[in-house]
Design a protein around this nucleic acid. Structure first.
Lengths: 244, 244
DNA sequence: CTCATCAACTGGTATGATCAGTTGATCATT
DNA sequence: AATGATCAACTGATCATACCAGTTGATGAG
């Protein structure tokens, strides 16, 4: 019903504005940012705010700062890390970039079977028990939305089972990217979420430590769910193309 | 021969110190950072420097800042993005964390075949030509080290061919992590790098747009190379365990 | 016990001065 | 002409000191 009022600090605003200009290529790699003192004037904020915003750009791999020289824009495709996905998925006009969406779904599709396989090899007993608990909740749940959340939790848990920190961090980055548009996907994933059987099969294989079966079941599930999204994106692209 | 002298800014120093304490769990999730004014005293720097450092921590997903309240440490395993890998691979004493190394190699192993498959589907003609050029250089090259660099370039190019921004950003994050210890791996990868045949087969499949073959060849190559690293890590772990 | 108030924290913003690298023009030396 | 010193004019980096704004918990009136 209610939601927390958004309040953005000045440095965040600075970061956002510059980030948007960079990812939209209004500022191209090699371009030089205005000097901090000039940015203060342009954005009408104090220099500290500008510097803090730039520090974040630097941390995100979007700019290079050199003492004494100008701050230059980097090629984010070559330099930035996976967390930039969240910035790329939705463009400046609020439209979902279908190419980015495809990329995310595709990467998830590529990783999921291997995550399940590693989960089967590496899970601890408590982790396996947690999978069981989630499965039980899924069986008991009737609402689609809740089921979807449980499905995501199930995957998070599988990632934890895999004992692979890279998988986990990558999933964090991907989650950050699609979280804001999750409600768009409800209904789209309805069919695959109702398929509790796949989750049961995966859980069983993970319990048994059966890599092969875990991988296979996960692949079956994730391929179907990915395909649904790809088809939706096809339609979405055609719709956008028609409105040009 | 020569290398650029390193110089670290104060805010970077602040960031590094806090980051190290967080990833080493000296500061646990939920812990509160000292107030900015206190940190100034402790670190003997200006408050601006402290704030800039904290902005970077915030950007990295390591802390949560609340106006009026204390800055709290987040659970980086649950919150941070993939670029944190670089911070995790080497611990505070300069030792490589083999669990993290395994994670990286495993993720690379999981992604590479799919990258090759997508490259076969999506490559442009110029990208395919670039693969050819790299392959030619590899054939001509005799030094192991140079070959290794070319091999990495080849993979970067494949990622570019895949037209998948998520793959690309993920690879950036992983590269940042292992780049600093690349020289440790020379020799380890010697055998797989000398195997130009695999690269030829992948290139050919990508040219032909043959997803299946591209995936298969890539898998063959990456599995062998990963296996070599895993065996090394086994030995490395036993060596470390023996010295306890 | 409830609730308003307020003091004492916390982070956020503002200003202005100064330190410290970088760059390019200038000019004397070779 | 080539080299290297010097200097002015940028750039970012650091500092000190205010003050604004949100949070928290103790205090005290009702």
């Amino acid at each position: 019903m209610f939601e927390a009022v958004k309040k953005q600090s000045l440095s965040e605003e600075v970061f956002e504005q510059l980030r948007a200009r960079i990812v939209s290529h209004k500022l191209k790699p090699g371009d030089e940012l205005p000097s901090e003192r000039v940015l203060c004037e342009l954005l009408n904020v104090n220099r500290g705010a500008v510097r803090e915003g730039i520090k974040r750009l630097q941390q995100a791999g979007l700019v290079q700062v050199r003492h004494g020289g100008a701050t230059t824009v980097l090629d984010f495709q070559a330099e930035a890390g996976l967390e930039l996905l969240a910035s790329l998925l939705v463009n400046e006009f609020g439209q979902v970039q279908s190419r980015v969406a495809r990329s995310i779904v595709r990467m998830r599709q590529a990783l999921s079977p291997e995550i399940a396989a590693d989960a089967a090899s590496n899970r601890s007993d408590e982790q396996a028990a947690k999978l069981d608990a989630l499965l039980e909740q899924m069986r008991a749940s009737s609402e689609t939305l809740q089921r979807q959340y449980l499905a995501f939790e199930f995957w998070e848990c599988l990632v934890e089972c895999s004992n692979n920190i890279a998988y986990r961090l990558a999933m964090n980055s991907m989650r950050r990217a699609y979280q804001p548009i999750l409600q768009l996907m409800t209904g789209l994933l309805e069919k695959s979420v109702q398929d509790v059987g796949s989750f049961e099969a995966i859980t069983e294989a993970v319990h048994a430590g059966d890599r092969i079966t875990a991988r296979q079941c996960a692949k079956g599930y994730i391929d179907a769910s990915s395909e649904a999204i790809f088809q939706f994106l096809d339609a979405y692209e055609q719709h956008n193309a028609a409105n040009d």
